[in-house]
Design a protein around this nucleic acid. Structure first.
Length: 696
DNA sequence: TAAGTCCCTG
DNA sequence: CAGGGACTTA
């Protein structure tokens, strides 16, 4: 049935981003000559201003038309016609109408045409008496309401000026549908609105004009809001009055909505209705003007065709537009504020990405994802997996408003101990988050000195866990070093690639900290020490830690080619996702790389030094080679390197010596034979390397 | 084709 | 040490 078709298309036109909703301009719109003759082409009228202004214009125009069409327009017969066409129950009583509507899709939908033809097409003569009376009463009330509205148009809308429960309940379905579609269309509208802002406010291109433009925009917004409020209140009042007037259940809103829903859910001959409304756009036509003009055209058509739904529709639209206008105003304000802040001379982005500013600006710059070049740099430094993880975490819709969105997990509020005198016990499972803490560095430095005198099997893990990656006292330089973007990179990327920032309940009891992957690694002043520690903690707690790295290095003394089984066994304290496993494999690949480079280097050196026999090629603990290897894999020297590793290293060196002596190195893949040999020399990793038990 | 590895770069 | 391209292998 055509009204339902109209309904459907009407309620879907804002959501045309969905391909299935891309309905072509319905033919009956094009044939609505009455409307077209009374209003100028929508394209010309919508040539300027934002959607909200166009909507206002449309609203005003429609109101003018409503007033011009006078009683005929508001004649209840229009409702009757619509209801008859919409409600299956009423179709039986108005078979002529239904049959006509099935053949033609034009006349019953045009309110003006209905006004010209009266109620006769509906065959509603039996209802004429009371409907006329109802129309008179409605007109009188309308006049009253208009007077009231004129008085309160400038006053802010009361919170109660929203849909009452009685109103929203029966139309919840419709409204949810409508709002859903509107929200879907919101992005499109924002685009055009933003473009308008750019063409108007941003046309000057000077920062000095931005405040003026912003002020003008705000004033315009306020004015539009006032108009919208007035119009909305008017519609609301009118609707309330209408509902009170129409006592007959047939014309009550509930029935109307039931009818509407019944037809709504029935499904429609989509081939008739769903033609592409964005054919202009798809065919390369004007995106904004033409499309919006078409939408306005369609909207007004709908309003005129369905006077009984006009109030509700406009109420929905105005409610939506009101909220949207407010949101847009707030957005624009904050956009300008943030933009101004980043362009303000008080803020300097130094080399290395350090932001020198006050706390508030730092807050913005540290969390503003879009406006800060620092963030872009840090983003570019993040591994792809980090970016993808961020993409998963941060919906695209959030990209605009993130300047005010700050994640503050519980760990952020946890006070970070700066007590230098507190000694941690050598528990294996001290939260690793503290190990890059400068105070902990100092502490670990002391611990390391103690550990150096302990045997491996008793205290190596303690030393392993507590040994800092670097030693030294906490100084501002160290803090800067820690937060040097380049240096931070490795720490950041040391977390599992493509790990979607899900919190890993690590078996070691390591605290799962905040997901701050979106935080730019801004080189911070020493005053931001505490937050730095927190972020550092996060980085270290995400997946593999520096302790895992050190452990892996020590494991390399036993196995150069650890199987995934070994890795799983000895890194069971980490949630061994695919990414973490890849990272572990990459670690050992890097270890091997360094190992073989050293082997080749010393093998060639041996040849240069005149070593004539492979028997003279040996690796001892006082060898240069061993020192180099030990420095790399056991930098703290707190681990007793097993003799087996010396044997393997010696064999490797001999293999390289032989290959070089035999000039096998001319073969591009000459090392592969050596790799194959060395890979068979792996030994079991001591059980002490296995995932440690959780200590208290 | 996916996983693993090598090799190079930063 | 990570990233990534090239290459190999199952």
């Amino acid at each position: 049935m055509n009204p339902s078709l109209l309904d459907h298309s009407m309620h879907h036109f804002p959501s045309s981003t969905y391909p299935e909703d891309r309905a072509e301009h319905p033919p009956y719109f094009l044939h609505d000559n009455t409307y077209n003759s009374s209003t100028p082409p929508s394209s010309s009228r919508s040539s300027g201003g934002s959607l909200i202004s166009m909507l206002l214009q449309k609203t005003i125009e429609s109101e003018q038309i409503l007033q011009e069409s006078s009683a005929a327009y508001y004649h209840p017969d229009a409702h009757i016609s619509f209801s008859a066409l919409t409600s299956p129950r009423l179709v039986d009583h108005h078979s002529s109408t239904s049959s006509k509507s099935s053949s033609t899709t034009i006349e019953p939908l045009s309110p003006a045409s209905q006004a010209s033809t009266g109620a006769s097409p509906n065959g509603a003569g039996s209802n004429q008496d009371w409907t006329l009376e109802l129309g008179d009463r409605r007109q009188a009330k309308r006049a009253r309401v208009e007077n009231i509205i004129r008085g309160i148009a400038v006053s802010p809308p009361s919170p109660s000026v929203h849909c009452t429960d009685g109103e929203t309940t029966p139309t919840s379905n419709l409204q949810s549908e409508t709002m859903e579609n509107k929200q879907e269309n919101k992005r499109k509208q924002r685009v055009s609105q933003h473009q308008d802002l750019l063409t108007t406010g941003g046309a000057s291109g000077k920062s000095t004009d931005e405040g003026h433009n912003l002020k003008k925009q705000l004033q315009t917004m306020q004015r539009l809001l006032g108009q919208l409020q007035a119009r909305f209140i008017q519609i609301y009042e009118y609707q309330t009055e209408s509902q009170e007037d129409v006592s007959d259940g047939t014309f009550s809103t509930g029935v109307m909505e039931d009818d509407h829903q019944s037809t709504w859910n029935k499904g429609y001959p989509e081939t008739e209705v769903f033609m592409d409304p964005y054919s202009e756009f798809n065919n390369g036509g004007p995106l904004d003007r033409g499309h919006l003009g078409w939408k306005n055209h369609k909207l007004t058509d709908y309003i005129h065709s369905n006077p009984d739904k006009e109030d509700k529709l406009l109420a929905d639209i105005l409610k939506y537009e009101l909220s949207r206008a407010v949101n847009s105003s707030v957005d624009s304000i904050f956009k300008n504020i943030s933009h101004t802040l980043f362009k303000s001379p008080q803020l300097h982005i130094k080399d290395g990405g350090m932001v020198e500013t006050d706390d508030e600006t730092m807050f913005l710059s540290s969390h503003e994802p879009a406006s800060s070049s620092t963030h872009v740099d840090s983003m570019s430094r993040l591994p792809p997996c980090s970016k993808s993880g961020m993409a998963q975490q941060l919906p695209e819709i959030q990209t605009e408003a993130l300047s005010l969105v700050v994640q503050k997990p519980a760990s952020m509020t946890r006070p970070c101990s700066l007590n230098l005198t507190v000694k941690r016990p050598l528990h294996f499972h001290q939260p690793s988050l503290l190990y890059n803490h400068p105070t902990d560095l100092q502490e670990d430095h002391q611990l390391l000195d103690n550990l150096k005198h302990n045997s491996f099997h008793h205290d190596t893990f303690g030393g392993l866990q507590c040994a800092p990656t670097t030693t030294g006292l906490p100084t501002p330089e160290r803090v800067d070093l820690l937060w040097d973007p380049v240096k931070v990179k490795s720490k950041v990327t040391s977390r599992p690639p493509r790990s979607p920032q899900v919190h890993h309940p690590i078996a070691t009891g390591h605290n799962v900290l905040l997901d701050s992957s979106c935080l730019p690694h801004v080189k911070m002043e020493y005053g931001s020490f505490q937050s730095m520690v927190k972020r550092t903690s996060y980085v270290l707690n995400e997946g593999l830690t520096t302790h895992h790295l050190k452990k892996a290095k020590l494991m390399f003394f036993y196995t150069r080619y650890p199987s995934s089984n070994v890795l799983t066994t000895f890194f069971s304290d980490v949630q061994l996702t695919r990414c973490i496993m890849s990272q572990l494999i990459k670690w050992f690949s890097n270890f091997r790389e360094f190992y073989y480079i050293q082997m080749e280097k010393f093998a060639r050196q041996a040849r240069v030094e005149g070593v004539n026999s492979v028997r003279d090629v040996a690796v001892r603990r006082d060898s240069e080679l061993f020192r180099a290897l030990n420095m790399h894999y056991n930098k703290a020297n707190d681990f007793q390197v097993p003799d087996r590793f010396l044997e393997v290293a010696e064999i490797t060196l001999q293999e390289f010596y032989i290959s070089i002596s035999l000039a096998r190195d001319s073969d591009p893949s000459w090392k592969k034979a050596i790799y194959k040999v060395i890979s068979k020399l792996d030994s079991d990793v001591p059980a002490e390397f296995k995932a440690p038990p959780i200590t208290t």
